[in-house]
Nucleic acid binder design. Structure first.
Lengths: 123, 123
DNA sequence: CGGATGCGCAACTCCAAGGTTGCACACCCG
DNA sequence: CGGGTGTGCAACCTTGGAGTTGCGCATCCG
């Protein structure tokens, strides 16, 4: 689930959501377990984590909102699987930002050096 | 400051701290402003943000704990500068994790397909 | 059929993060 | 020297995130 089927305009997961999702240690553990076991239910996850099933369910909802997890109903149980594409997208987003910022910082540094030269390295 | 001078064993900033730091929108704005202007004080940052100077100071402390920001005292004011290296380190860390997980997921998928074949594509 | 088993929803508690105000101290400058 | 400016620290308030318990409903299986 994680969202009502055909309910709203389906807010696309943005990199910010991924950052929020990964900021929590329990959520990281959930995602790790999901990736290592290739899918699990909220109940089975709660068994190997120090929290209750409901807590896990909430974390899965957050991960789902970030697009990192997809739910699949199988009979009476709900199987969750990890989707790592948003993660990749987020790292690329961060790298792009970092590149832009570094470029900017270099430009500023260079500019300030030029100013120092023009003024004869004045104090 | 951001840490007592010669106080403890100096807890090294880990990728988790970076995730926590970047999970907050105000903190992202602070870091952005710092990168675009090449350094600023808590007061000047508070001027262009919808929060008080003290709030900015707390955010700068969090960013500092993640290693994303360094403080430099200049007379009576404290100039903060962005350090993007922890950011780069974090994206690489995340990419490595993603790669490991994807590898694992592929292996599981392949395994389950083999099992299906052995059983004659049973339902 | 009837008891397990698994989920979802709702109400409630708890605490830390984010934010503010107030004040004292250090510093620069006219 | 004295006022203006910039910081740091501490107390305090408020909100939302994280977690739990309790209950009702659906589904599987002996």
């Amino acid at each position: 689930m994680t969202r009502a089927p055909e309910g709203g305009p389906a807010p696309e997961p943005v990199p910010e959501d991924v950052l929020v999702a990964l900021a929590d240690p329990v959520r990281r553990d959930v995602l790790t377990a999901l990736a290592l076991e290739g899918g699990a239910t909220a109940t089975s996850l709660a068994a190997r984590l120090p929290v209750t099933r409901q807590a896990v369910a909430k974390h899965l909802a957050v991960l789902g909102r970030a697009g990192l997890v997809r739910a699949r109903r199988a009979g009476r149980e709900v199987r969750y699987e990890a989707d790592l594409r948003p993660l990749r997208r987020t790292t690329r987003w961060m790298d792009t930002l970092a590149a832009r910022w570094e470029e900017r910082l270099d430009a500023i540094k260079e500019l300030s050096e030029e100013l120092s030269e023009e003024e004869g390295t004045a104090p």
